[in-house]
Amino acid sequence: VKVFRALYTFEPRTPDELYFEEGDIIYITDMSDTNWWKGTSKGRTGLIPSNYVAEQ
């Protein structure tokens, strides 16, 4: 598990995607895809765009 911080707010387009706000901490559990990672924030899990976060 790696810890990342959201650089921007992300509004999901599908139920599989995770909503998060700029500054949120996201725990990444799967980075197997280059563009979409699986992450958890505020008790919810979903896909996030990798270019919206920076490693802490």
Rank of each mutant, 00 (worst) to 15 (best):
8 Y>D: 06
26 I>Y: 01
9 T>A: 08
35 N>D: 14
46 G>M: 02
16 D>A: 13
17 E>V: 04
34 T>M: 13
54 A>S: 13
13 R>N: 13
56 Q>T: 14
47 L>K: 10
8 Y>K: 13
28 I>K: 00
36 W>M: 08
30 D>S: 06
26 I>H: 00
51 N>S: 14
38 K>P: 04
1 V>Q: 11
38 K>L: 15
48 I>R: 03
2 K>Y: 11
40 T>A: 08
1 V>I: 13
40 T>Q: 11
25 I>G: 01
24 D>P: 01
20 F>I: 11
16 D>V: 08
53 V>M: 10
23 G>H: 05
14 T>R: 12
22 E>H: 07
47 L>A: 05
53 V>I: 11
26 I>Q: 00
14 T>W: 11
41 S>R: 15
46 G>V: 01
2 K>T: 09
2 K>L: 11
38 K>Q: 12
35 N>L: 14
41 S>F: 12
4 F>R: 03
18 L>K: 01
4 F>N: 02
40 T>E: 13
19 Y>D: 07
53 V>G: 02
6 A>T: 01
51 N>D: 12
35 N>Q: 14
53 V>T: 02
12 P>A: 10
37 W>E: 00
38 K>E: 08
52 Y>P: 02
31 M>C: 12
15 P>R: 09
21 E>G: 05
30 D>G: 06
44 R>I: 09
29 T>D: 09
42 K>M: 10
32 S>V: 10
21 E>W: 04
7 L>A: 04
33 D>V: 05
10 F>C: 04
34 T>D: 14
49 P>V: 02
4 F>C: 10
15 P>I: 09
6 A>G: 05
20 F>L: 07
54 A>W: 10
23 G>D: 05
8 Y>I: 09
52 Y>S: 11
50 S>N: 06
19 Y>S: 12
49 P>W: 05
45 T>A: 11
30 D>A: 05
25 I>T: 10
6 A>E: 02
24 D>M: 05
27 Y>F: 13
56 Q>D: 14
55 E>K: 07
5 R>S: 04
3 V>A: 11
22 E>R: 13
49 P>Y: 05
35 N>P: 06
5 R>K: 15
12 P>D: 03
1 V>K: 11
11 E>F: 15
8 Y>M: 13
49 P>C: 11
25 I>V: 11
11 E>D: 09
21 E>A: 08
19 Y>Q: 11
48 I>E: 01
52 Y>M: 12
52 Y>C: 12
4 F>V: 14
56 Q>W: 15
53 V>C: 03
46 G>I: 02
34 T>N: 13
2 K>S: 09
3 V>D: 03
49 P>E: 03
